[in-house]
Amino acid sequence: MTPAVAHAARGYLLLTPAMAVLAFTMAAPLGLLLAYSFWTQHGLVVDTRLTLAAYAAILSDPGFALVFLRSLAIAAMASLAAIVLAYPVAWFIAFRARAKFLWLLLVTIPFWTSYLLRVFAWKVILGYNGVINSGLMALHLVATPVTFLLYNPVAVVLTLIHGYAPFAVLPIYVSLEKIDPSLLEAAADLGDNPAKRFFRVTLPLSMSGVIAAFVLIFIPATGDYVTPSLVGGANGLMIANLIQAQFGRADNWPLGAALAITTIAAVSLLCVLAATGARRAASRIR
């Protein structure tokens, strides 16, 4: 064995436990999930002959399509809004803040409190006896509490924006931080005012961070279960609620598996499309 081969062999050997764990806890379950989506279930008996029945069931019920589209739309809106809201903060921390470390810490800390309780806090804010209604009543703007705040898709979007905020700030900050300040000076030197400098240099160079933020928020947001359950109401239910139902009350695992596989496929496709689109758009900027 040459030293290079021996080095590689030692490396693969050392990687084996980690890869085995990933194979067992991720690759195998996902493979089985894919298989399940082609199976059928009658009562407690699982029929392992391959069929497209589960996918056909999804296609035949417009209710599924509605929830699918709603989930993707809610997640897309939440990701985009989170990015737009977070970008100026990331920009401020990267280029203007004196105590960067402190600011990054301040952005991260609320993220580490129990996700369930943070979502619940929004229920308290938007609810019948919540913060907003109490405020409106105290100011005599309404006589009785308003009910349109909670249990709708807007409440879900708002809660998701809050829940995934650090995933927007941090990647954008990292990409901004990497920009060599002399590039901005060069742009100024060559005649660009601050606004032009931002659109011609800063924005295209931070696009990798924007894309990372989108992917990091869009994927978990599409599959979020807690937020739609607590603040979504009947019109704010998302795909995770449907998937969970197949493993709970409805007890149709193949259908649940097919829904999950469809979700992964749709989310991956949309992420690739969004990333390519964003990169194309950025490369048009000259």
């Binding site: 060599d180 002399s182 000076e185 030197d189 160079l205």
Partner: peptide, 17 residues
């Protein structure tokens, strides 16, 4: 941007994009 002066930067500051 409003001076009729241009600069060759030490790091060159070539736009990577």
């Amino acid at each position: 941007e409003k001076r009729l002066v241009n600069t060759v930067f030490q790091s060159y500051a070539i736009f990577p994009h």
